[in-house]
Amino acid sequence: MARRYDSRTTIFSPEGRLYQIEYAMEAISHAGTVLGVLASDGVVLAAEKKVTGKLLDLSVTKDGGYGGSGEKIYLLTDNVVVGVAGLTADANSLVNYARTAAQRHLFTFNEDIPVEQLAQRLCDLKQGYTQYGGLRPFGVSLLYAGWDPYYQFQLYLSDPSGNYSGWKATCIGANNGTAQSLLKQEYKEDIKVEDAIGLVMKVMSKTMDSTTLGSEKLEFATLTLDPTTKKPKAKIYRPAEVDALLQKHDLGKKEDTEMKTS
């Protein structure tokens, strides 16, 4: 019976459900985990990479670009970084849309786009695909880590239905239930970025399938304020930096085991 209402994205089932949207959300819950923690002096994002392997060419990520490997964490604008879970191809399209929206805001207002407004722009687009027929919705959830002078540091989550919400710590993708309850236990008010990094690492190591964490499986980013300029500074960690961070938190792999980074 449900099948009859599957073929169109915009048709309610008799139970009042939009199956395609639910399927999109289901797809995301199998995607690589993305975790975000809001601290008083910054925001931390971590993401589990699914596309790995010895033959994957990651040479540019070592010192080119902004540090990300282009799978999970993207820089949207100076004051917002985003982590994506779901269909990477859909995410690329959304990231491009968000970057343009951010620049358009900068163009008309001469200020960085407020984080919530950027999330809203994307959600307006996503919502459209739950209502206008003929097309498939975006199979992507996003975590936005950002800063603006109106509400300082912020962390938002958005899903394929076009819903969004603000969080102190949250998670999307595989095992998000486990991660969420771990975060709920461990999160403390007024946590600092340094501790938030530790928390993210800890939760990540428990939710990911692999026993040892390494830069080939993990992307990592922080958003803080530059102490001199007082402007937001996004940092997407390079593979070597991710490994160094894991070592620091005693979660990295031991020296003798398989491939070396850097």
């Binding site: 604008t77 343009t100 620049q103 900068l106």
Partner: peptide, 9 residues
């Protein structure tokens, strides 16, 4: 800005 962020240089 769009050039920089897309080209990553």
């Amino acid at each position: 800005n769009m050039y920089t962020i897309k080209e990553e240089r």
